[in-house]
Structure formats: C-alpha cells, structure tokens
C-alpha cells in the first residue's frame, strides 16, 4: 500500500489544537505547514503572529515564531526580514489585527514592497475577545459591539484589503481565497505556495486573504457557517487573483 497523505511535521504531534469546532485556522495552519515542507524551508521560516485567535497556533507549530503587538506584525516582519533576508518571513493575522489596529503597519509595509508574505485570515469578526465588530463585518451582521447589526451610516462598510492594496504600486501578488470547499482549500494552498515562492525569489510583497468562518461568534453551527461564507461573505469578498505581477510581466 502506498502512503499518499500524512500529517505535516510542522505541527507538533503531542499538542491539542485550541480552536473551536468548525474554525478554519487549523486548516490554514495545516496548509501553511504543508507548503513550508514542500518548499523545504522549515529551517528558515519565521512566523510573525498577530494577536487574537491567530495566535493560538503558536504552541503547536514546530517552526520559529514571534508574537507581535496587536496590529504590528508587518512592522515586526520588516525588522526580521531586513536583517535576515534569507529567511522566509510571513505574518499570520486576523481582520481586527490587520485591518483595524494594524492598518497603518499593513498598508505601509505593502507600500514599501517588503519582501515578505502576509496571510490574512478574514472571518469578519473579532474571535478571541468574543464577537466584536471588525472592519470586515458584513452590513447587517450582528456583533457584540453592534448588537443591532452593522449599519453603514454609523459603522461604514466592510473593508476590502486586497482592493485597498491594489491601488498601491509596490505589491506583487494579492489574492483572495476561501476554505469553505475542498476545491477552495486547494486553491488556498496553491496561493500560499505562490506567495512564498514569490518571496524566496525576491519578488516583494504578497498577501493571501483567506475568507473563513467563526461559527462560535457567528452564532451558528459549522455547516451553516460554510453556507454563510458561500452566500454572504463571498458576495461581499469575491474570490480571485486581484493582482499578480508575474502575469503582468508576461
């Protein structure tokens, strides 16, 4: 019998995941680990972890990691990558971290064209703190700090980070994927791999925005959350490659 699939060695075997049922962080972390192994770069990988649920993986991944202050992952990554250009540096951030408190650090790093990768996990809500409104919360979606639901007049509209970055000149690769179907999981893995390859080839800034769920704070079961992604989240955040400079060059 041939072994056709095994768990990635980049996740420690004796540790238990701290993620809620239906949470897609564990999927994304697995995909990142598989890509790191396939590219054979475990010994030069540094993960800059944001604050929130995106930090729950640190205890059980097997490669180097550092916790950045809330929102500052792209600044910390800048310091690490500039002083160790040979390393593979990526930030792992949620929507509150990346698009609210860290908006200046995120856009400034993108604008400088820093040669690292941003993995942006967008589930439209603050997870760890208990379901507060995020910059990416959908109109009408209830949050603990928007109990009647987000309304545009008071709270503005969901923020589209890939599109915001697409007006900057420097970013090399901007892509939005999801993990709501097996096909989209595969596309997400391919996007992460492309983004990491871009960095290893010195191409500059790449961001993979991954639309995910938060069943706990969305107040629904895991399967309903998959439908919510498909019907609501992807209507607001359409999937696809927003920019790929390698294609422009062709």
């Amino acid at each position: 019998m041939n072994l056709i699939y095994t768990r990635t060695k980049t996740i420690q075997e004796d540790k238990v995941s701290g993620f809620c049922p239906g949470c897609m962080h564990s999927t994304v972390i697995k995909l990142i680990g598989e890509v790191i192994e396939e590219l054979n770069v475990v010994d030069k990988t540094c993960c800059i972890t944001g604050i929130g649920c995106c930090g729950l993986h640190m205890d059980y991944i097997a490669y180097d990691t550092i916790t950045a202050p809330h929102g500052r992952a792209c600044a910390v990554a800048t310091g690490i990558k500039r002083t160790n250009p040979e390393s593979l540096v990526f930030t792992y951030q949620g929507d509150g971290d990346l698009a609210a408190i860290g908006l200046a650090e995120t856009l400034s790093a993108a604008n400088r064209g820093e040669n690292f990768t941003v993995i942006f996990v967008n589930n439209g809500i603050y997870g760890m703190t208990g379901g507060q409104m995020a910059p990416t919360t959908l109109i009408g979606m209830k949050a603990s700090t928007a109990p009647a639901g987000r309304n545009a007049k008071e709270h503005g509209y969901p923020m589209h980070m890939c599109e915001l970055m697409n007006v900057l000149t420097a970013p090399y690769y901007l892509v939005r994927t999801s993990c709501n179907t097996p096909a989209n999981v595969t596309r997400t893995k391919n996007a992460i791999k492309q983004a990491f390859k871009n960095q290893l080839e010195g191409k500059g800034f790449s961001m993979v925005e991954i639309v995910t769920s938060c069943p706990t704070n969305w107040g629904m079961d895991a399967l309903s959350a998959l439908d919510f992604i498909q019907d609501k989240m992807l209507a607001e955040f359409p999937l696809g490659v927003i920019r790929d400079k390698s294609k422009e060059a062709d």
Partner: peptide, 26 residues
C-alpha cells in the same frame, strides 16, 4: 546596516523589536 523611516513611532519600535529578535543589534 539597515535604516528605515517608519510610518510611526509605533511601527519603528516594532521594526526594532523584529530586528533585535533576529539577533541584530538594533
């Protein structure tokens, strides 16, 4: 060496936190 004008004091100190975490005197 590396010099960066950060987008803020907050970004600058966190760049130093990153650089120093890589072992560089920062």
């Amino acid at each position: 060496g590396v010099f960066i004008q950060g987008e803020s004091e907050i970004a600058s100190v966190n760049m130093v936190y990153g650089a120093a975490s890589s072992g560089t005197r920062a």
